[in-house]
């Protein structure tokens, strides 16, 4: 019936297609990274999260250990509540510090975890007490300019006048 060669070609095609999906999953994407079904969540409150976005990486010592799963605003404390899902393989002490950091000067923002010394470990639903907000570039510049203006007496009035303007534009 000549069906066998046809079956062979379809087999080759389906195998190639499935192989392509696997390549996309493992070689192009990173299947081994955080598997959300095997994760526990903790929350952390920040004064200012800067440009942090959902799905941003959570790193400790530079290794990705989880992802930001949710960002919300708490209108009681006026702080940002960030929910982190962390890989079950890694545990952290209760007094771990969460900081919002930037990769490179203009790169993406991520959360860095700095492990503390407590014996108790963070569990599902816990809250990280010590946090460090994002560094906002405009604040840094204006602070720098203020201190310059204060220290350098009457030498540079123009930048000092410009500083409040930059402060006004920050989010």
């Amino acid at each position: 019936m000549g069906r066998t060669t046809l079956d062979l070609w379809v087999g080759v095609f389906v195998a190639a297609g499935l192989a392509a999906l696997l390549v996309l999953a493992f070689k192009v994407g990173n299947m081994r990274s955080v598997n959300l079904s095997d994760a526990y969540t903790v929350t952390a409150d920040f004064d200012n999260i800067g440009g942090l976005k959902p799905r941003a990486a959570v790193k400790s010592a530079g290794v990705v250990v989880g992802r930001v799963s949710e960002i919300a605003f708490d209108d009681k404390t006026y702080e940002a509540r960030v929910t982190l899902s962390l890989d079950k393989r890694y545990t952290f002490p209760k007094d771990t510090i969460a900081a919002i950091l930037t990769s490179g000067l203009l790169g993406e923002q991520y959360i860095g975890l700095d492990a503390g010394g407590s014996d108790k470990k963070l569990a599902n639903g816990d809250k990280i007490q010590i946090t460090q907000s994002a560094v906002v570039l405009e604040n840094l510049i204006s602070n720098f300019l203020y201190s310059k203006a204060a220290g350098g007496s009457d030498k540079s009035p123009a930048p000092a006048a410009g500083a409040p303007a930059t402060q006004g534009t920050q989010q």
Binding site: L21, L24, A25, K27, V28, G29, N30, M31, S33, L36, R55, A57, V64
Partner: peptide, 12 residues
């Protein structure tokens, strides 16, 4: 960099 940025669930 590709593997870090391409998320399996979200992109693939």
């Amino acid at each position: 960099q590709m593997q870090a940025a391409v998320d399996v669930r979200h992109d693939v």
